[in-house]
């Protein structure tokens, strides 16, 4: 697998405020990488830098071995970018807009019609070619945005919060599309929704306060797989702990347990057997992606408490006024 995108030690200042701190990302063919983080973590700034919209304060970015800062025109040929708000002109029709995008990306005149048709087909816009973008629903505008990002068949597709503001059916369709894109291109998408990452991404970075707080490539070897188990009645921790390969058992609320194991042998069969023998009433037995949820929840909790603080302060200010 070839490396499509390699960003090293990216930093970005806005005045004195450092929005992104030493972020490094690599992307290979077939990767769907999720950049997960609470609001204000620096996701959009990172995406803007990767797509060449913002210059990093330090660090460098290579797209297929071409430096984005030294040779922007050549590097950008391999990038498709959908920013947070789709960059569409509301007064154009879908076809007019996509033709313009195709020309901007240097597609030859004879091939433009074919590219537009293909992009529309892949994003489910076949029947909307003659409609004004301004009259389309948010979900369809988002599709036009994605069509714009894939029209030139780029190797790297960067999608900033592609499912925000869509209804559940549209979210499902867009996720299917992203999964399909991931087979042929390298995709980076940002989101603050954990399940989204778990359903479509095969790689995850968590960004928090401008730093990479979790990086699957470096953390995977250190953490152990986990099983989430839940029973009707309290389990006997001693017999659970006696199973082979169990490293740690954490008790959660409602007779739930987080079982961290070494994966060799996988203890889920044994846990199920113990539950039946001990009549604990097995309700749930799920493998959890190691560390990810925990890291994200810790971050999210931290953010919630700080948000609560600011709310509180706002209230105080309101009262004072």
């Amino acid at each position: 697998m070839s490396t499509l995108l390699k960003a090293t030690q990216l930093s970005r200042f806005y005045g004195d405020f450092q929005a992104v701190k030493n972020v490094s990302v690599t992307l290979s063919q077939g990767d769907i990488m999720g950049l997960l983080g609470p609001n204000g973590a620096g996701k959009t700034t990172t995406m803007d830098m990767l797509a060449g919209n913002l210059a990093p304060s330090s660090g460098n970015i290579e797209i297929k071995g071409v430096d984005l800062l030294d040779e922007p025109k050549r590097a950008k040929q391999s990038i498709g970018y959908l920013p947070e708000q789709p960059p569409v002109y509301r007064d154009l029709t879908v076809d007019e807009y996509l033709r313009y995008c195709a020309r901007l990306h240097g597609i030859r005149r004879q091939q433009i019609a074919g590219s537009v048709d293909r992009a529309r087909e892949r994003t489910g816009l076949v029947d909307t070619g003659r409609r004004l973008i301004g009259n389309l629903s948010k979900g369809y505008q988002q599709r036009v945005g994605i069509a714009q990002a894939i029209i030139h068949e780029p190797d790297v597709i960067i999608l900033d919060e592609p499912t925000v503001g869509l209804d559940p059916i549209q979210i499902h369709e867009i996720r299917e599309l992203i999964r399909e894109l991931g087979t042929r291109h390298g995709v980076i998408l940002s989101t603050h929704i954990l399940p989204e990452v778990q359903t479509i991404c095969n790689r995850v970075h968590i960004l928090y306060e401008g730093r990479i707080a979790y990086d699957d490539a470096s953390t995977a070897q250190q953490t152990h797989p986990e099983i989430l188990a839940r029973f009707n009645r309290p389990a006997d921790l001693d017999s659970l702990g006696g199973l082979g390969g169990i490293i740690e058992i954490q008790s959660l609320e409602n007779n739930g347990y987080r079982i961290i194991h070494s994966n060799n042998p996988n203890p889920s069969d044994e846990i199920a057997r113990l539950a039946v023998e001990g009549k604990w009433g097995l309700l749930e037995l799920t493998p959890a992606s190691p560390g990810l949820e925990q890291v994200f929840l810790n971050l999210a909790r931290g953010e919630q408490s700080s948000e609560a603080n600011t709310d509180h302060e706002a209230e105080k200010n309101g009262a004072a006024a």
């Binding site: 797509a51 950008k76 040929q77 995008c101």
Partner: peptide
């Protein structure tokens, strides 16, 4: 204002 600038900025155009 309409955030369409990023279309131009991420295209291979100087």
């Amino acid at each position: 204002r309409d955030k369409t600038m990023s279309l131009l900025l991420s295209s291979p155009v100087s």
